[in-house]
Amino acid sequence: MKKNWWKVIAVLFIFYTIIAGFLIKVPAQPILHETIRNLYFHVPMWFAMMTILFVSVWYSVKYLNKSTIENDILATQAAQTGMLAGLLGIITGSIWAKFTWGAWWVSDTKLNGAAITLLIYLAYFVLRGSIDEEQKRARIAAVYNIFAFVMLIVFLMILPRMNDSLHPGNGGNPGFNKYDLDSNMRMVFYPAVIGWILLMVWIFTLKVRLEKIKRKLLYND
């Protein structure tokens, strides 16, 4: 239990955001209305995705430095978990867009950037699947992963800030602007981000342990 304290924090924070996220007063904004509460659930997905994908590229760099299969497993499983968070982010974002901007998808720098990022990571899995030899697969995938992470930063952090965008926090404005200024919302938003990041890390560690067991069974039997 002692080493699982962070899982407890994840759970407590998410339960807190589910309760407080619905019950605490939010500013009344035109167009957004009550959907402003999506900030507590949609945005943490992207924070979690970026954190987990950073973990992924971290282990890819580590693999290139020291070629152990463990580093490769960690990088792959992190990329997969990151995709889970990213997919949830893009689906929830699409639903939110439908009820505020009026369309499931708008051709927007931020939205297209997010879609391209997911496709780039999809190619990472395709690349892995196409190479049979383990060492080679791990090395090429690690190099590609670094490229993918750089592209993620370009598509999600840089390009949306250089163009006009419907999405908040873009078009030269790095912050969440007016939504984030509400201190009530911050009280829920920050724990939500931490909680969801930790939950995704938990899923990631489970996947890693399962993969290691799988490998052990494969080579012992």
Binding site: A28, I31, H33, E34
Partner: peptide
């Protein structure tokens, strides 16, 4: 008209 706030639930 100014005080007519956005519709909330």
């Amino acid at each position: 008209q100014d005080t007519q706030s956005p519709e909330m639930a």
